[in-house]
Nucleic acid binder design. Structure first.
Lengths: 353, 353
DNA sequence: TTGTACGCGTTATCAA
DNA sequence: TTGATAACGCGTACAA
């Protein structure tokens, strides 16, 4: 069917080794024969078969990335960061989506192994206790870098952002503005990102002598705008609702914003709102959102750099554990330091009618 | 290094053929030996090497997608549509980005060939006259489906949206609201999508007896928000600015919106605005944007379905040329049918001071 | 500088 | 039901 090196060899009456050498810029070939080979190759529109090549060289120049989804702009930016570096370094990228399903995630990781990728970047969503496939990667010395969240019980490379610091900043900002009842909308999963953000939330409250109240931490079902909406409504229906809400990510914050406005309340006058992630949307909202920005693209590109270095040094690098610094982006959803009590009264009034 | 079928064979004292059969659910193997093989395979954590397999079967179960970028939510949604179908049908996805560079695009296509993908989906940005690599794909019978834009001089599968119809709808909507001076911000490239939208714009004007004025069609340098901003400013500085502007995509419309507001003008009271694409952002803007929605995800999923069918029927399917129907999404950026002349006056006043 | 021969890890063919 | 053996297309050590 397709043109092989042997075909070129036969045409020129040379051996296929010579053709191979000519095509691989091997110096052990006469300049003249090389030219001939290249000419014929071009004429026949020859394309090397990387499968056969990789079978011998044990290199595919391909890396895999495993993500829980690709609809969020968060994972989207990760892909961008990874792709940019991979491309620059000459690696192709196989995109795998686990659809938030640990079983599927495991399958994707196995698939990437079968496809003999040189390494992988994994946004791991499985539980720390059930991460055999990650252990196996380590055991079999297949280069991999975790991204966005790390595993406490596995010593490996990872690139994450410092979620404790990020949440701490956000909550401290609200406290400085005079808030004492600060709601927190989180997500159900027990990933390090969420856990660390909870830790940052508590750390800030503790530091300013504010008691952590359980009823102010609510769990939104899944990462969807609609659920920030629903959970915010629950807050608004409380007898003593929070005066500020910290959403564990911007998507939830967007939902919360809609819920607040639907109740006829205003952000930030009635309720202050902080998100997390600094999605590209967030500055375009009706009320530009104060949020914690993570260097998401950088997370992707750093992960790719580390992975590729590891690949090219045959995995003999010491695990790198990178915590990138987040940054508080102050916009309009928190306002300045107005009188809180007035606001609270107004909220109660509106809710109870 | 890694476990091979031969290793399993030696342990069990059988031939590697038997192991292969057992592992591939081939009925020509004793149930008992099959069990033994599977047990040992599991114990040794055996992973098949797909490279070797594909070398023989001539199938990689992998498709490639070539995109001009992955930062826009447009291409993003395409990837989502493609990935979903590919995954369901058991195909892996290699992501290639051409960075709006035709030379690079060609390289990526060649790379995918060398990696022996079973087929590819291409958001082709090269010129119609220089698309040798597409011709070669056709010649060499490598399945491919064009997406978002088609090539007039190549008879091949493609999935696009009907851009003539989409632009026509948008402009007709503005005309029905009373607008006669309708600006149009386009992009420099000569792709079918842009050309067809221009055709739709003209078609609507012609149908209502409005003359097409050259000065009302402005070209924004590249697909970036900032450029919609700049081009809109140019419109606002005209002696006789348009009362409505149709942006060839939402990103440009967003930039235009900011330019208008920065001038102290209001949308839709002072200037009506229509976009194209219905990005997920567009309903969240300060002024929710009236826009033409394309079924982007569907474009991706249809393309993938067609491609995979073609692969599995060994390319003996007749080229499918799909035009998906766009849809006008009416929000707030056009307003109702108010008095135009008043608005025009106000615009002039503001611009000239 | 070139060619021969072998190996990469599978699947496929044929004979047993 | 199994096992030798030959592919698949390429790279490479070794010999020439």
């Amino acid at each position: 069917m397709s043109v092989r090196m042997e075909d070129i060899a036969k045409i020129l009456g040379v051996s296929k080794s010579t053709v191979s050498r000519a095509l691989n810029n091997n110096p052990l070939v006469n300049e003249n024969t090389k030219k001939k080979v290249l000419t014929v190759a071009k004429r026949l529109n020859f394309r090397k078969n990387y499968l056969a090549r990789s079978l011998i060289t044990k290199r595919t120049n391909t890396i895999g990335i495993v993500l829980p989804n690709i609809l969020s702009s968060y994972t989207h930016e990760i892909v961008y960061g990874v792709e940019t570096v991979a491309n620059k370094k000459g690696y192709a990228l196989i995109l795998c989506v686990s659809s938030d399903d640990p079983k599927k995630e495991e399958k994707e990781i196995h698939l990437l192994r079968e496809k003999q990728v040189d390494g992988m970047i994994i946004f791991f969503i499985g539980e720390s206790k059930h991460c055999d496939c990650i252990w196996e990667l380590k055991q079999d010395k297949i280069p991999f870098v975790l991204i966005d969240r790390y595993l406490k019980n596995i010593y490996s490379d990872f690139v994450v952002t410092d979620n404790i610091a990020g949440a701490y900043m956000a909550v401290k900002h609200l406290i400085k503005l005079g808030h004492k009842r600060i709601g927190f909308i989180i997500e159900p999963e027990g990933s390090t990102s969420i856990l660390d953000r909870i830790e940052g939330y508590k750390k800030a409250l503790n530091e300013f002598g504010i008691k952590v109240e359980k009823e102010l931490i609510k769990t939104s079902p899944i990462r969807r705008e609609a659920n920030g909406y629903r959970t915010m409504k629950e807050f608004l229906l409380m007898k003593n609702p929070p005066t500020a809400v910290f959403a564990v990510n911007d998507e939830i914050a967007i939902g919360a914003l809609e819920a607040i406005e639907e109740q006829g309340l205003k952000v930030p006058e009635d309720i202050a709102l902080v998100g997390y992630d600094n999605l590209r949307v967030s500055h375009l909202l009706k009320v530009p959102l104060t949020t914690v920005a993570q260097p998401i693209q950088e997370m992707g590109s750093r992960a790719a750099e580390i992975l590729i270095e590891k690949i090219e040094k045959n995995g003999i690098t010491k695990p790198q554990r990178i915590f990138l610094k987040p940054k508080l982006i102050i916009r309009e959803s928190c306002g300045g330091g107005k009188n809180i009590s007035k606001r609270v009264k107004k909220v109660r009034l509106l809710i109870n009618t």
